[in-house]
């Protein structure tokens, strides 16, 4: 079951492996595998390829300031996220630093998020909820700058762009760990267990 194929199979090998797995007779092999689908260029995928890496890969040209972001936020975001990102009815976006070990942790961009690039990625792909992907790159940079400023992470005169954003160090970055599970041990005790 666990065939961790670390390297790509050749097209011909792929055909054989799949045929065996599916219980089918061997199919004609050629250099093109199944020959399904059309080749596509990165330029053709431009409208869909909106992800941003933590190294800044995928960030578009453009830039935005804290002040410009404040103006956009107060027009397009405040109804759901509250004044200055304090939340209600939707997620709180600012504050909460120092609360994560308490009984009532306040998880925000500033207190919780490990990477600033994620702010740009998420706002561009999914916000505002009623009109996603309606914001220009400049607007997304500006909103990102404003949200980082609300959390005390960048100065009020900060400009966010493809060079500056990946340089932003998030306060909670070092808290993130990989999955250590299984982490809780029980026994299959049958009698007199408690």
């Amino acid at each position: 079951m666990r065939s961790f194929r670390r390297r790509p199979l050749t097209a011909g090998a792929a055909v054989i492996a799949i045929s065996v797995a599916a219980g089918q007779s061997a199919m004609p092999q050629d250099d093109k595998g199944f020959g399904i689908g059309q080749r596509v260029s990165e330029a053709e995928l431009q409208l869909w390829n909106i992800d941003v890496g933590i190294d800044g890969a995928g960030l578009p040209p453009g830039e935005g300031s804290v002040q410009a972001g404040k103006a956009i936020y107060e027009t397009k975001c405040v109804a759901c996220h509250g004044a200055e990102g304090l939340g209600q009815p939707m997620d709180r976006l600012a504050g909460g630093q120092g609360t994560l070990k308490s009984a009532k942790p306040v998880k925000t961009i500033g207190s919780y998020w490990p990477y600033a690039t994620t702010v740009f990625d998420y706002v561009r792909r999914a916000m505002p909820l009623d009109r996603p992907q309606s914001l220009s790159p400049d607007e997304v940079y500006a909103l990102t700058a404003y949200l980082l400023h609300l959390n005390g992470i960048v100065e009020s005169n900060a400009i966010m762009n493809a060079q500056t954003l990946p340089m932003v160090r998030m306060p909670n970055r070092a808290a993130f760990r990989s999955d250590p599970r299984p982490d809780a041990a029980n026994s299959a005790c049958q009698t007199d267990c408690r």
């Binding site: 933590i54 998020w113 490990p114 909670n172 993130f176 299984p182």
Partner: peptide, 29 residues
């Protein structure tokens, strides 16, 4: 490398009592 999207950083991560955060906790035990 992973992209660290909103839903694998801000959400679907596990905040522990010591303030550390478990990320990429994929399997449902």
């Amino acid at each position: 490398q992973p992209w660290h999207t909103r839903d694998e950083t801000s959400k679907y991560t596990d905040l522990m009592p010591d303030g550390t955060v478990r990320q990429f906790t994929f399997v449902m035990e």
